[in-house]
Design a protein around this nucleic acid. Structure first.
Length: 489
RNA sequence: GGUAUCGUGGCCGAGCGGCUAGGCACCGGUCUGCAAAACCGGCUACAGCGGUUCGAAUCCGCUCGAUACCUCCA
């Protein structure tokens, strides 16, 4: 295949040719959700971004092992409450076992991901299921002299590490700046330096989630789980590590440090980061009242939403923006996407029904190339969509007999649309295909009746039928040849 | 304050030195009993100020603004 994929590597700040370490195998690790609440837009973006990457790499013929973790241990409330495990807190409030909370929100996360047509990763490991692996890495780092124990907790010695490696090379930081910028901690400083981070944390008595270790009953430091699980399933040095840009520092930076000491090598070859999301230009936050979960989007049950937005609308909207750009949500923008998606899906339906002619009035071959070029340029999905929309105009033109297409080109066009819209962008028509045949028969009956009224010039009746159908969400359109219907307005 | 990512028309967003983005909205027109869809046409921007260049939205510098991270923890 002559396709040459280029990906933007955060660590080099440039687009690099993608060359797997062991082709055709590709290992990809992406930081998954912390399951202590319903998924929101901040979860949807990386999921959809790396779903696109996953789909495209497979399309190019690579055998991809995609690992996306579930974080289910040792989280703190980062807002008001101090020192309490996010999951443990929720468990206490709900009178549930911590693992019950984890299960509940993991299931709900999976449902949301299915709705967004995000493919399941190859492996979805849980941090709590890999405590032993994490402890082993901590031991290794201690043996190599880059970690120390204080009061049952183990910390990574960032200052020592930085003397031989560059701590901050991923996020563009310099250790001296980090140290000088760090605010003075009040009290119990177990760390030698402010920049040091925990590899193992001793659990306080009230902390429910805890595991035995050589140092204390406690839980692993945050960065440990990704190092342990990526190493276990993808090896010490794998191809792609992805995640949100908010994880750049300190999370991914620290993973690099751990890996360099534990395994004497970089964890991965390419670092890919998706950009963040804002709502009406503001960051999303519980305190700002614009914290909207995916379920609220799908149901339209949040005060700042004018209406419900379907999963495919959300997906389409995200794909209309490049993954490395910030993405701003607003009702107006979502409504625009909803209509755009509908136009695209309608064109695909029309495409299925087009009749071929002797000649084509446009050059189809360019479309495929343009779409591949866009995808190869760091997964430029908005450019792919723009290319497809250019052809929508042509498809409509054929339908209106203003343009013509040969049988051969028609077949090619169908393949291109199926490949890019359905397979790669992962968009799908949201009407239920099981029931659509019955509905279609019913609608034919209704429209025939309505047509009788029209022939009799009884427009009061014909308009009432159309208006009533409109109310239940069915649009009727009259053409020269008859009437057609569709879901929507 | 530091680091990172960005600042494009009414809105959302591609673009990476010269040439068209695309979607939505809006305004005309074709079609139509009416409407919608579809099609045709119109509107047409690059935060600001300097600089490089024959030529800059695109490169460089500064200013302003936005978002994320910079904390014990995930």
């Amino acid at each position: 295949m002559e396709n040459k994929l280029f990906v933007y590597n955060t660590i080099s700040r440039t687009k690099e040719a993608f060359e797997p370490i062991n082709p055709p195998l590709v290992g990809m690790y992406v930081c998954g959700p912390t399951v202590y609440g319903d998924a929101h837009l901040g979860h949807a973006r990386p999921a959809i971004t790396f779903d696109l990457v996953f789909r495209y790499l497979q399309h190019l013929g690579y055998k991809v092992r995609y690992v996306r973790n579930i974080t289910d241990v040792g989280h703190l409330e980062n807002d008001a409450d101090e020192g309490e495990d996010k999951i443990a807190k929720k468990a206490r409030l709900e009178q549930l076992e911590p693992m019950e909370v984890v299960q509940y929100f993991t299931d709900r996360y999976h449902i949301n991901m299915n709705q967004l047509n995000v493919l399941s990763p190859s492996i979805e490991p849980r941090a709590s299921g890999h405590i032993i692996e994490q402890i082993e890495i901590v031991k290794k780092i201690i043996e190599k002299g880059y970690a120390y124990e204080t009061n049952g907790s183990v910390y990574f010695d960032v200052v020592k590490y930085d003397s031989s490696h560059h701590y901050g090379k991923l996020s563009g930081r310099i250790l001296e700046d980090l140290l000088s910028n760090t605010r003075a901690l009040d009290g119990q400083d177990e760390k030698r330096n402010a920049a040091d981070f925990a590899l193992w944390k001793k659990a306080e008595p009230e902390h429910i989630m805890r595991w035995p270790s050589p140092w204390s009953d406690g839980f692993p430091g945050w960065h440990m789980e990704c190092s342990a699980m990526s190493c276990k399933y993808l090896g010490e040095h794998f191809d792609i590590h992805g995640g949100g840009m908010d994880l750049l520092f300190p999370h991914h930076e620290s993973e690099i440090a751990q890996s360099n000491i534990a395994n004497d090598k970089e964890p991965c070859k390419y670092w890919l980061h998706n950009n963040m999301i804002t709502i009406n230009g503001q960051k999303m936050g519980k305190s700002l009242g614009n914290f909207i979960t995916l379920n609220e989007f799908f149901a339209g049950s949040h005060s700042s939403l004018e209406k419900a937005f379907s999963p495919m609308t959300i997906r389409f909207f995200m794909l209309q923006t490049h993954y490395r750009s910030t993405l701003d949500f607003s009702n107006e923008a979502l409504i625009a996407s909803e209509k755009g998606l509908k136009r695209l899906m309608l064109a695909m339906e029309i495409l299925d029904k087009l009749k071929p002619s002797e000649v084509s009035t446009t050059d189809i071959s360019q479309l495929s190339n343009k779409c591949y070029e866009a995808m190869n340029d760091d997964f430029n999905s908005p450019q792919v969509l723009a290319n497809l929309f250019d052809t929508v105009r042509f498809i409509n033109g054929v339908n209106d007999n203003d343009e013509t297409i040969t049988a051969d080109d028609l077949q090619k066009l169908k393949v291109i649309y199926t490949t890019f819209v359905i397979d790669l962008l992962g968009l799908r028509n949201e009407t239920n295909t099981d029931q659509i045949e019955i509905i279609d028969s019913l609608m034919t009956m209704i429209l025939n009746t309505r047509n009788l009224a029209k022939i009799n010039r009884d427009f009061a009746v014909s308009d009432k039928i159309r208006a009533d159908l409109n109310k239940i969400g069915i649009a009727v359109k009259d053409n020269k040849d008859g009437s057609t219907w569709s879901f929507g307005i």
